[in-house]
Amino acid sequence: MFSMKNDLVIAAWNAIEPNDSQDARILSAILSANRSERKRKEKTMLHTKKLLIPAVCLVLLAVVGIVGIRLNWFTASREPIEAESEGAPVNDTECKVPNPILDEELNAAFGYLFPTEIEEGFVLTEEGIGLYSDSADALHAEHRVLKATYYNEELDDTLLIQVAPSAYFGGYLKNMPYGVVQYGDPQTDGARSSMIFFENDGITILYKFGKTDIAALDAEAAERFYAMVHSARYFYRISPAESEENDEIDIDG
């Protein structure tokens, strides 16, 4: 880099400065611009703050909506129940409501037939208790079926309890009298299901074992089973079984 005497240049430049009036004019213009900018930014900040609360509310609503949809707070999918032909198991829909028996309305619809005391040894399975419906309108009892699936380790068998309006079971009950043990088709492994229906005021309850013969329960097991059945708040008294396959069972009481 080169160097040179710069005193003259510095001296020359030193003279270049705004005079007092210029100074005042320039400063006035700058301060005026600063005040305008401050007002503008303060307005923007206030506007942002005003929008913040509604924005936060919207975000909260969105979060609640997303969580609610995931947890099925608002809707539940439903598919029509298909009536099964005679002798075949009834298909259920995919609608499931957790622990519906506690719901007052559902309890009023189905609860009086559902056992209030579950026999020891019967454990609710993963399917648990579910409410299934063939209609998007779940408020009408006639379109709903309550299902509870238990497992008994001693019997190594499942017990299905279904409660629904009698019309739900349709032709299935046509040849199946209430209070009489009925049987499903034998499976390939030789097992066959056994079931028994009870009814009251247009509501039917079904007890169905996967492979245990209800009629073949020993006295103690049968007593426990029917005690469970009878624990329902309002149990329809049936007449003694007429089928030769069943022992006479006194279920009064």
Binding site: E17, P18, I26, L27, I30, L31, N34, E37, K41, E42
Partner: peptide
């Protein structure tokens, strides 16, 4: 974000020349 008039005046005085 917002400069006061005093800050602006001082800044101007520092560098106006």
């Amino acid at each position: 974000l917002l400069r006061t008039d005093k800050e602006i005046t001082e800044l101007y005085a520092r560098h106006k020349g």
